[in-house]
Design a protein around this nucleic acid. Structure first.
Lengths: 119, 119, 119, 119
DNA sequence: GTGGTCTAGACCACC
DNA sequence: GTGGTCTAGACCACA
């Protein structure tokens, strides 16, 4: 997989995992790929994936069972959605509006662009 | 001034300068604050401001006159606006829409949030 | 049964066995649960229990009769008590006192806490 | 420095840092040793110290300023004391009492041992 | 100089 | 097989 280089790889992997959870590809209480598996498939070092999983664990999205692997937590979907929404509304959106104002772009323009791309 | 942690300070200063230009606080062909002045008022290391000015220079927003300081270029406003709009439409907006879809947030929600904040 | 995360499961099982011996639930020269039985009741892998039993055997607390299972040794109680007391006085207690000093906790506080919990 | 091997080195370093804070060797809002410095003096890999500092950062004991190093937080002392006391009372102490009961050791014995060692 | 990220490779305990 | 820790060494961005 390809990674951007303006953001740490391990955080991009975290985003990817969020995506999996939100798309229900990672189901609650089920096993997720092992560190090594994911490392191979993403073509990164296992340590890097480990770091992502550490992060996800600290956010209560996954947990580890010794010698057995990592599992998605009960409530992982809700937890992820809430987390992401919060950061969206509290950070992304405000910056977005600021930039709109600064560049003299109206809501109408945004809506137009949205309709265009979703066609 | 307070800076965020997730973005290099020198780029946050660049953003701030863009802001000044777009708000016409930095007028074309007029002198802008010296590296030292800006460093003092922002409470950062002069090297950091230097780096921001280097960047702005490479983007043709400002230029230096030896011994006299930095000046906003003729056409700085247009240049900045175009630059920012381009990155807005080609990058920010697409990411924004992707995130909206992922988090199940509709355009309506965005418009509502916009109207609410601009009150 | 629930296990803690900061200590290997097999050692937690060992502790549990010590407990049984000291509480006279495992009587000397009598049969103790088979590896499989214990594994089922604790909901762990038989290998894990096997490892605990190996450990107990190496400490002369239990022994195996081929085809008949495991038995508590003659003298298991004394052996366990001595073992545990030794490690308690030589290791646990010193660390405990160090931590008390560091956190400015007096013996009085400890005694108070003890009386409170034993009510 | 010597480390035990029943506990990850990075956590032993964390304990050491707690100790520094509680002994007022690390003063609030002052710089603490850089990752590399501490790594050299403890004879461990910088990554390992980094990990300890990450942990301390997540516990709000220290924070980093880019390119400038790590600093003890305002309130680090209180924060550390509270953290340690909490884990002491909620975990260490209970286990300690359990073991005492199991091994038939009385509070008197503990007090005696304490007086003896503090002479 | 500082923190921070990443890789490669090793070793261990655990299940 | 799994997670977890550690080392060595490299490279980058930042101040």
């Amino acid at each position: 997989m390809e990674f951007k280089d303006n953001k740490p790889i391990y955080l991009q992997i975290v985003d990817l995992c969020f995506h999996k959870v939100l798309k229900r590809e990672w189901k609650e209480e089920e096993r997720v790929p092992s560190v090594r598996e994911l490392a191979v498939s993403l073509e990164v070092n296992p340590n890097t994936v480990m770091r992502s999983y550490d992060y996800l664990q600290s956010e209560d999205i996954i947990y580890s069972k010794r010698g057995m692997g990592y599992f998605a937590r009960q409530g992982a979907y809700e937890q992820t959605l809430e987390l992401q929404r919060k950061s969206f509304y509290e950070t992304d959106l405000l910056e977005f509006f600021n930039k709109m104002n600064l560049l003299n772009i109206s809501v109408k323009d945004i809506v137009a662009a949205y309709n265009k791309q979703s066609k």
